[in-house]
Amino acid sequence: MTKLDLPNYKDQSPEVKARFDDLKQRDVILDVKHLGKIFDSAKGPVTALEDINFQVHRREFVTVIGPSGCGKSTLIRTLAGLESATSGEVLLEGAAVSGPGPDRGMVFQGYTLFPWLTVKKNVMFGLRNQGVSAVEAESEALEWINLVGLEKFAEVYPDQLSGGMKQRVAIARALAAKPRILLMDEPFGALDAQTRSKMQAYLLEIWRHIDITILFITHDLDEAIYLADRILVLDAHPGRVSELIEVPVSRPRAPEQLLRPEFLAARQRLDELIHPPGQGDEEVGKLNMLRFANVGEEVQPQN
């Protein structure tokens, strides 16, 4: 394998650098301090997260990536308040959070729309909980439904929607409750590649137009880079921050950028971090050699 001649992923164009300079000036929306989480399982305590520290700025898009089981879901669930931290704390705009609340919206990997409510009523759910009148909630919900392009489906029940549409409604539902930060746990993980890339475009569009900060979990390297300002890379066992990468790709994003050198540089870096050489690669290497060996045997007699 020839190594591509790529720039260093830390090199930033002036435009990108200016953007990061601006980002760092903004308010800190989410501040995670020494966060730790230990599960008491039947086989004894499992350390899922250990001393996690990072900050997310206003309107920033942070993706979280890491090997399977490294604690990504645990992290986002703890931020959402669905799990309680064992140690450390989570500050949302300076205030410590405990328990779930509408200030941290969440979109799950599985479909969690309420099947007994129409799309419109699903989107109204958060507003109604906050005591917004039905009329007001309805008109606001319809705006959000328009934003995700589902105005024709407002009166339809979720089971009549495709997977991608369901997740768009889930995004609209979460945003309608006016969270300060949107937490997304592999929201497009169950979608096919084509729908997924459409959803990425949708999400970036939405994010550009409204004041929302996003923390997005994925296990797809390209998705992590394509969406993010910064990528939080986690190590497994215990889950720890391995690196916080500033993505050197300019905005607005377009699919063509997947082949740009700075994109590939970031991708290569992620690859190194998530599949460290000498671990998983060895297995892949062996497989490749086997394949080549077979080809060799077939080819030789003809020579």
């Binding site: 669905l82 609340g101 969690t112 909980n129 409750a177």
Partner: peptide
């Protein structure tokens, strides 16, 4: 599905709302 309850919690549902707006309609059929 507990995920429905969790979704409701992140949408600001309190205990009462959880019971009357999620659990009951959810199990009704």
């Amino acid at each position: 599905d507990i995920a429905l309850l969790e979704a409701a919690l992140t949408l600001g549902a309190n205990r009462r709302q959880l019971l009357f707006k999620v659990v009951i309609p959810g199990v009704l059929p």
